[in-house]
Design a protein around this nucleic acid. Structure first.
Lengths: 226, 226
DNA sequence: CCAAAAGTGTTAGTGATACACCCATGT
DNA sequence: ACATGGGTGTATCACTAACACTTTTGG
């Protein structure tokens, strides 16, 4: 196909931003980086950056995430595209936000490019953020909670083997409410996606808890529909 | 804030594409335009076009929709952002897809800019489409059906006053399956969002149907969560 | 035998599904 | 009186929510 090239009119820049959630110390945390460069120099922000000219959007998100935090091998899901013309003081920048949940124990943070530091922050105690990143995080929390109830995203936050009480705690922390132990277990069993191992976990002076594992890592609903 | 400007590195172009659904002639239809210019000259495509440098994304979608089809006053919802580097032969173009449902009886199609024609096509009998627009439409159908069951988007497709049978037909056409009349009505009433008017609609030789209207146009679930 | 968390069963209520009959109208 | 679509009620099933007691362990 012989095509005429696009004219070089001024057009928006395109970035990706990544919201990585984890549960740690009985708290829902989000991964932030401290900016090395203007604008918003030395302020905390979501990891992210410019999409290269020949690079897939998700690939860009994965690359920026690894460069800025050291985190890799993540299943990212597209969240929303934010395009308010005033959201970046340098000019017109639209950003495609991706999000994921990770087991923080499997991660060591190793910031490299363009950032001074990468650090977990409590969702309920965030610093003032660069750009419109507070708004992006607020929206991602709504979606996270929604997805937690209808899919199995929550399982991404736990190690291979886990107790049902650990799983319940995780749900309680993300949803920020108490759940009934019996009903929670019935619901999880009804999904038919966990199976008991022969191992148990002993912690403290009480009956040891059975360790469970996932039968598979599929979502209950097709990707991106919910 | 004194900021350094962005360098003029090559960066993606940004477009919006709009999927407008309607139900007409007992069929689910989507609004397409015939391209006047290359690439894909004289092929059918979704209405859409480039985002101006100082223009909100949704504003761009509304502008392009009106320019290319004459359709205006639409509540658009962001669907997904497509960014495969090969999706446009002219170069790197990412597109943010928006979608909406409209009552086709309220619309007169009046194409103006850059298009030869604007026309409704059956979802089940689409022509070969430009770019990756077939993929975008496929995805939007999944989301449309999902939203129909959990929100009240479907009401956007009907005139102010309508019979419950008309509403049911609409659901059946979009979901592409028969629904039980009694259960459908119970469900609609349980939402508590329609109320009967004192008017009836007589069509054919049978008992006249009560006309209903919506109590409000709110969605049942918050915007964009589902 | 005590403390502490693991683990389980029952009941009531709510919403979904499946199904069949009467009603109002024009001819 | 009949043909046509409008309109309703009931029984069953599955899922959710609320609630209390027994089990296993180490000290």
């Amino acid at each position: 196909m012989a095509e005429k090239k696009l004219e070089k009119y001024p057009h928006p820049f395109v970035t990706v931003d990544i919201i990585i959630f984890t549960v740690k110390d009985n708290d829902l945390k989000v991964l932030l980086v401290k900016r090395k460069l203007p604008p918003f120099q030395r302020m905390w922000a979501l990891p992210g950056g410019f999409v290269h000219i020949e690079e897939n959007l998700e690939a860009a998100a994965l690359r920026e995430l690894q460069e800025e935090t050291g985190v890799k091998d993540v299943y990212l899901e597209q969240l929303y595209t934010f395009g308010n013309p005033a959201r970046d003081p340098r000019g017109r920048v639209i950003t495609i936000a991706y999000f994921a949940l990770l087991d923080s124990s499997k991660i060591k943070l190793q910031p490299k490019t363009d950032v001074e530091a990468a650090k977990w922050f409590s969702m309920y105690n965030l610093p003032k953020l660069a750009f419109d990143h507070q708004q992006i995080i607020d929206y991602s929390l709504v979606r996270l909670r929604y997805k937690l109830e209808y899919t199995t995203v929550g399982f991404q936050l736990l190690p291979k083997k886990f107790t049902l009480t650990e799983l319940q705690k995780l749900y309680e922390i993300i949803l920020n409410k108490k759940l009934d132990k019996r009903n929670f277990r019935k619901k999880i069993f009804s999904f038919n996606i966990v199976e008991p191992t022969s191992e148990t976990k002993m912690e403290g002076i009480h009956r040891p808890a059975t360790l469970y594992k996932f039968k598979n890592k599929q979502f209950l609903l097709p990707k991106d529909v919910v």
